[in-house]
Amino acid sequence: MTTFDVNAILSSTAYGSDGDKIGKVEQVFLDDNSGEPTFLTVNTGLFGAKENFVPVKGASQDGDRVVLPYTKDVVKDAPKVDADQHLSPAEEEELYRYYELNYEGGRTAGTDRDRNAAAAGTAGAAGTAATGRDRDVAADRERTAADQDRRVAAGEDASVVRHEERLNVGTEEREAGHARLRKYVVTDHETVDVPVEREEVTVERTPLNGTEARVDNGVIGEEEVDVTLHEERPVVEKEAVAVEEVGLNKQTVQETQRVEADVQKEQVDVETDADRDLPRH
């Protein structure tokens, strides 16, 4: 991790040891003596509201991903350290102790921007790098004031740079629930009317006048004739047939949610020596 591209890492996204996304890498803190990276700060809150320090030791870089040897919960619960200033030995020791690493005392760490400011003979807190947002407002004001004094002494026009905060609103994906398909059996009672037929016996009598051919030989006696009757009855059979296929489809529904936050901006007032009731030199 000591040989990674600082500019590339500042536009990377940090992931935990379990593969979960933690947040965007905001700053890289370098050792004052060796110049090697010692800490990263990772944005773990909404709208950039919270940065947490993570030791570089054990981390790896994979393109635009930084894989940390800690889970997201561990990083989010790290001790709160002001990310806008130079780290003190006590703060470093507290962070090393939290992450269960051996602390080599006597060294402090600052961002690469902080190191450049020290080389130029100015003192300031650590600022952001390659993020487009100036987090080191106090240091900027100090440098601006010194530059204005130089311009006034040289007879040049004086100016100030006015800053204001803007809301950078984004979204994050989270698990909202589960949908399951469960098949179960219910019993319905059905009634069906089925038409059926059956045979019935009717008695038909035909009078004879005595001249018809005799089929009984004129013998009087008992006789029995058997007739077979038929009828239909309903027969019920059941079979299982496929009637419908039910599936689940995911779709993305877009809606608008309102977020509110307080932002600060700078205003510029002009003040002369007469306003301050001070003698002019």
Results as ranks from 00 to 15, higher is better:
D136Q: 13
V74H: 01
M1V: 09
D193F: 08
N116L: 15
D73M: 03
A59L: 07
K265F: 02
G127S: 11
G106V: 04
Q61T: 13
V215I: 13
D275H: 06
R151E: 11
R65F: 07
A118Q: 09
E165H: 02
T256L: 09
Y96G: 00
R276G: 11
T38R: 15
A240P: 15
D136W: 13
S159M: 11
A123Q: 15
T41K: 01
V54G: 02
G35R: 09
R198S: 14
E223A: 14
K183A: 08
V192F: 01
E197S: 07
R180L: 06
F39K: 04
T191G: 06
R214V: 14
E266C: 02
A78M: 02
T256F: 02
R115G: 05
G155F: 01
R97L: 03
L10A: 04
T191Q: 09
F53L: 02
R233A: 10
R280M: 07
E266G: 09
L229N: 03
Y99L: 07
E212H: 03
D140H: 13
L30F: 03
L30K: 05
R258A: 11
V201L: 14
E36R: 08
D269L: 08
P55L: 02
T252G: 06
V185I: 08
D262K: 03
A240Y: 11
K57M: 10
D216N: 15
V42G: 01
E204Y: 13
G127E: 08
K238S: 03
G218E: 07
H281S: 10
V75T: 02
V241N: 06
Q257V: 12
A119Y: 11
Q267P: 04
Q264L: 12
A138K: 08
D157A: 09
T111Q: 00
E190C: 05
A240Q: 15
G19Y: 01
V25Q: 05
V6N: 03
A158I: 10
Q251W: 06
Y15C: 10
R258E: 15
V185N: 11
L181Y: 03
Q254W: 07
G45P: 05
K80E: 14
T131G: 04
G218V: 08
N43G: 00
K250T: 10
E224M: 09
D20T: 15
D193A: 11
D62L: 04
T3I: 14
V6R: 07
D73I: 00
T131I: 01
Q267D: 14
H189V: 12
N249S: 13
V25N: 01
V225S: 12
H281E: 12
V201Q: 15
H178V: 12
E255L: 12
F47E: 10
T211Y: 12
V54W: 04
D5N: 12
V235H: 12
V227Y: 11
K183I: 07
E224D: 05
M1S: 08
A49G: 13
D193I: 09
S88G: 05
E94Q: 09
A153E: 06
N102I: 11
Y103I: 05
V203G: 12
D20H: 14
A59D: 11
H281M: 11
D140A: 13
V81L: 02
H281I: 07
V194Q: 06
G58T: 10
A14W: 04
E204F: 07
E212R: 05
D20S: 15
V219P: 00
G19D: 01
G110V: 05
K72P: 02
A59C: 12
G63K: 04
V243P: 00
A154L: 02
K50V: 04
V42L: 00
